[in-house]
């Protein structure tokens, strides 16, 4: 078990500076330096599943591009499975899997099965292992009926599942996922999450997950990295992030009839009411169960749901908590 403690992703003082030429005036152009990643350091041990979050433009995708060897860093040290991604990009490709979210790695005009066959030949996957992996992904991600369909005809959710399978055919040691559940319906979302959880526990694949959906993190990741302006703002458990930022979740309850705002529940306050529906805020670090129990005991409860706080809000509160 000694191997598990050894860092698998090592990032130390990582920097990426872009020089952009911007128009200043009618003809004049000026050069501007943008520090997209600015001294980022963290390590991830083998087999861990880490959430990687931050506002848009925080430097997440630039970091992932450097981790995958697409971009060369401007400074700092970077190791993935002991390799330097920029220098040893080709060697590294066999050991990593990448899902780009918005862009598919599949061939737009080819049937899904043909895309997978190409992957098999590119990664030189032994036939038996290929079949085993494909069968497994096909079953768990419900791809069976899609194998003969050209990729361009797949829906967003179908394509995301297809892309995840494509990234796993060669048994990568680490999987980078960029917004894997964005735009997916509830069913697809939970299927993807369940699949990733199994993957991590059964094959101990290291997973780095970029997302805007705190639900993904809550259900999958024990650890979150928050970055903003290219710097690491937080490294720890999601619950801790909630504490730092004192963020709140919202319990939406539908009562049998219109009632005055619910009050007197410890740790919860009513945000607003609208007919029989009421919104109750409670600390994100607390469990919803006791609150639900008490509401159900004291009020005629018909239906309920829990809203996660938006990542931007959590981060904004985190700043507020630090300075205030």
């Amino acid at each position: 078990m000694g191997a598990a403690a050894e860092p698998f992703l090592e990032v130390e003082g990582l920097e990426k500076v872009f020089r952009i030429r911007r128009r200043a005036g009618r003809l004049r152009r000026e050069r501007v330096e943008v520090r997209a990643v600015d001294g980022l350091s963290f390590t991830v041990p083998r087999g861990e599943m880490v959430g990687f979050i931050g506002p848009n433009g925080a430097g997440k995708s630039t970091t992932v591009k450097m981790l995958t060897g697409i971009l060369a860093p401007s400074g700092g040290r970077l190791r993935v499975a002991g390799l330097d991604p920029s220098r040893e990009r080709v060697e590294l490709t066999r050991r990593i899997g990448v899902v780009f979210g918005q862009r598919t790695t599949l061939w737009w005009d080819l049937p899904l099965r043909d895309s997978y066959r190409l992957m098999r030949r590119m990664y030189r996957i032994p036939a038996a292992r290929y079949r085993e992996n494909l069968d497994r992904c096909t079953e768990l991600l419900d791809l069976g009926p899609l194998l003969t369909v050209p990729v361009r005809q797949l829906s967003l959710g179908q394509r995301m599942r297809a892309d995840i399978a494509a990234a796993l055919l060669h048994d990568p040691e680490v999987l980078y996922l960029d917004e894997p559940t964005i735009g997916l319906d509830v069913v697809s979302k939970s299927a993807v999450r369940r699949f990733l959880a199994d993957l991590n526990s059964e094959r101990s694949t290291t997973v780095l997950l970029t997302t805007h959906d705190l639900g993904d993190i809550e259900q999958l990741c024990e650890r979150v990295l928050v970055i903003d302006h290219g710097r690491l703002m937080y490294d720890g458990a999601l619950a801790g992030l909630h504490e730092v930022g004192e963020s709140e979740r919202v319990l939406v309850v539908d009562l049998a009839r219109e009632l005055p705002p619910i009050s007197g529940l410890d740790g919860a306050r009513t945000l607003r009411t609208e007919g029989p529906r009421q919104w109750l805020a409670f600390p994100a670090s607390a469990s919803a169960a006791p609150l639900v129990g008490r509401v159900a005991a004291e009020y005629p409860l018909v239906d309920l749901s829990v809203q996660e706080p938006a990542i931007e809000d959590v981060i904004a509160r985190m700043y507020a908590g630090r300075t205030g």
């Binding site: 591009k65 060897g69 697409i70 080709v90 490709t93 066999r94 780009f100 862009r103 790695t105």
Partner: peptide
């Protein structure tokens, strides 16, 4: 422009 070059860079070919 559309970023699909990145997907080629993460393949071993």
């Amino acid at each position: 422009r559309d970023g699909t070059l990145d997907t080629l860079l993460v393949r071993p070919v």
